[in-house]
Computed example of a mutant assay.
Amino acid sequence: MGDSWNSLHDTRDYPDRVKKILDLNQHLTEARERIIEEAKKKAELIVREAEKEAEVIVREAEEEWRRRALEEENRILEEARREAALKISEARRLSRLKISQEMSLIIEELFKEAEKELNHLDPSEIEKSLENLLTESLKYVEKPRKIYVSEKDVETMRRILSKLGLGNVEVASVNIKGGLILESETGIIVDNSYESRLKLARRALIPLIRKSLWG
């Protein structure tokens, strides 16, 4: 035991032991610094990765915002276009309706003027008109039996029938403004009165006007 105690307290080994301890401390210090450095690098790497991920998140968020903003902008524009289209369509409808009403008034005025002119034809024009209408009516009737005309046109019609060799056809007055109504022996009626012809003209004219207005 005495030898062991002496060996532990042998001062001759101190320098080596101190050197070893100092070397160990140096190694520990270096290892610690290396670990700290590696930790810093890992921390910096983590931060950089986090920053990259954050940039991606921000960029995606900005893109999403732009997309939604664009969608909202497009939605607003589309609504504005639809509203404008509806207003234009309604304006066109009202415009065509107004034009249609004005055209109806014009048509009425035209036919009123036509009736006035028919009522103020001179005798030669009346005779020519009646003869033309009779010639047209005879295309649909083989054997005329009776012709109805305005009371003022009875003698004129008799003169026309005589000229055409149809003096045996009866002439009678009827309440019409002009023209004639022809009746055949078999009961066929051909209405070529001015009133009837004006109605036909009106029916033919109005669809043409509507087509030009409404397409």
Rank of each mutant, 00 (worst) to 15 (best):
I126K: 13
K199W: 10
L133T: 09
G2L: 10
L8F: 08
M157H: 05
I181K: 05
L198H: 08
T135K: 15
R59I: 09
W214C: 00
E170D: 06
L118A: 03
L110N: 03
R66L: 12
E37T: 05
I188P: 01
R158H: 09
E115M: 12
D122Y: 09
E170T: 04
R145Y: 10
A201W: 05
R81G: 03
Y14M: 10
K146M: 10
E83S: 05
G187L: 07
K19G: 07
D122G: 07
S100I: 04
E55S: 07
S196H: 14
L164Q: 12
H120M: 14
V190R: 01
L198C: 03
M103G: 01
I160V: 14
K146N: 05
E53G: 01
D191L: 01
A80M: 04
Y140S: 09
V58W: 02
R32C: 09
L138K: 01
E108G: 13
A54L: 13
R66E: 11
I88C: 05
N119M: 15
R75T: 02
E72L: 07
Q101N: 08
V56K: 07
A84C: 06
R145C: 10
R75V: 02
L22N: 10
H120C: 09
V58Q: 04
K128T: 14
R96M: 03
L130K: 08
V18L: 14
L121I: 06
E117Q: 13
R197G: 02
V141L: 04
W5C: 02
R32V: 05
K40S: 00
Q101A: 13
R17S: 08
P144F: 13
E62M: 08
K139A: 11
S137K: 02
W65H: 07
H27C: 10
E131S: 15
L94G: 01
K143M: 07
H120W: 12
I189M: 04
A50I: 00
I35D: 09
E63A: 12
A172R: 14
L161I: 10
S184M: 00
M157L: 06
E183W: 02
I88M: 13
L166K: 09
D3V: 05
V174K: 15
T156F: 15
E33M: 05
I147N: 11
A50Q: 00
A43Q: 00
R32Y: 09
